[in-house]
Amino acid sequence: MVEILTSQVVSGLATGCVYALIALGFVLIFKATDVVNFAQGEFVMASGFISYTLLIRFGLSYWVVLLVTIVVSGVMGVILERVVVRPIMDAPIFSIVIATIGASTVLRSSAGIVYGYDVLPLPTIFSKDPIRMGVLSFTVMDAGVIGSSLVIMMALYLFFTRTKTGMAMRATAQSQTAARLMGVSVKGIFSLTWAISAAIGGVAGVLIAPIIYLDPNLGVIGVKAFAGAILGGFGSIPGAIVGGMLLGILENLSGYFFNAGIKQVSTYILLIVVLVVRPSGLFGAVAVKRV
């Protein structure tokens, strides 16, 4: 019993880590540019297909593929920002959001035209064989996903706190005017933000596609991640991580204790409860007041 429960938590955490990575992408772009990018899930899907092509059609090795996929995803993020978002940056936020929804449809359809709507298996270096450690029971895959996600999150943390560019990104999120006066190219920061968000989405895609298989509709996982981001308090980076992880675990446990129907709505029940009790989300910024 205990063993089954712990394995539920671990495998939920693995899914949750992927939600967290995608949620991070949402939050980074939102914090920097006030735009909610509804094409975030499509970055995940696209990276799955990119790595599939590189692995199967070109036969490259896994680590090379991972690296190339991250870079290509990042470039895709920049292109999306330059082509879709920047030209209408002065339009109402609502219009920009609609534009990102349009971009997501275009990406999804393009993948469908190029690869078809069939489900494809994406190879991975993490096996699905079980590991046992005391009461803990999980797969190499679970451990690999959790480990990789934590590495990415740590790398991001170091980037934001230890590098000048990371600091400039945080500064820009707080005041674009002041950042410009400091000599920061705000447009450059926007592009970089999209690149990083898309690249994180790319990592999420390479991690999740082997688990849930690859198809043009893979991007709908972004909806769950979005809920995770709101749960954590949209706009909070730790919130996105904790929100995503919590969601993964909660889904698994509710599926175990109840049924598939409850599992499906558990996300939204939790979301409503949290928003009623704490409207700003778990980590909602208690706004730092300026005197």
Binding site: Q174, A178, V184, V288, R290
Partner: peptide
């Protein structure tokens, strides 16, 4: 100012 950066980070900016 950048309210959520530290004093030192503001100066570095």
């Amino acid at each position: 100012l950048f309210p959520e950066l530290t004093v030192l980070e503001n100066l570095k900016m």
